[in-house]
Amino acid sequence: MSEQKAKFAELQTAIDKHKEEKGALMPVLQAAQGIFGCVPMDVQEYIAEALDTTLSEVYGVATFYSQFSLQPKGKYVIGVCMGTACYVRGAQKVLDRVEKELNAETGATTKDGQFTIQSTRCLGACGLAPVMMINDEVFGRLTEDEIPGILDKYKI
C-alpha cells in the first residue's frame, strides 16, 4: 500500500468512528489534520463525500479554525508570540526579521518546505518576552539580530 493510500485508510477509520455522531465534521477534520499534516483539497473532497455534506461546508469549517491548515506546514513551524508583553517588547521587529531572513510571509511556508511562519497568541512565557518557538523549542529575550543565527541552526 502506498503511503498516501495508507493515510486515506487511516482517515476512513476516523470517519467510521465518528460518522454517526452529530457534528462529526470537527473530529474528522482534526483526524485529517493529524494524518496529513494539513487538509488539502482532495482530502476535503473525500471528507465531504464520506459525511454526505458539501465541500463548501467542509472548507468553511477548515478555514474558520486556525488549527487547520490548507497547505502542508514546513518541517519547522516558527511561532512568534504577539501577545501584549511580547508585542511591547518588540515582537513585530522579530517577526519582520524572520520574514525577511526566510523570504516568506507570515502564514506561509518557505519554498523548500523547511519553515512555516506563524504569529501566535500569548505563549505564556511573558517573563521572557519577546518570545518565539520553533517546533517545541522556546527562544526568549530575543533581539532581531539574533534571528539569523538561530535560523541557521535549522537550515540544512
Binding site: 483539497m41 476535503q44 455534506t53 458539501t54 465541500l55 463548501s56 461546508e57 467542509v58 472548507y59 468553511g60 478555514t63 474558520f64 479554525y65 486556525s66 490548507l70
Partner: peptide, 24 residues
C-alpha cells in the same frame, strides 16, 4: 445549500475576514 442542495458557496474564513465564496 438548502433550497437547491447544490452548495457551491459558503462562509469562509473568520471574523472580519469572513466572506461568502466557493472553496479555495
Amino acid at each position: 445549500d438548502k433550497v437547491q442542495e447544490v452548495g457551491v458557496i459558503g462562509a469562509t474564513g473568520r471574523g472580519f475576514k469572513t466572506s461568502i465564496a466557493s472553496p479555495w
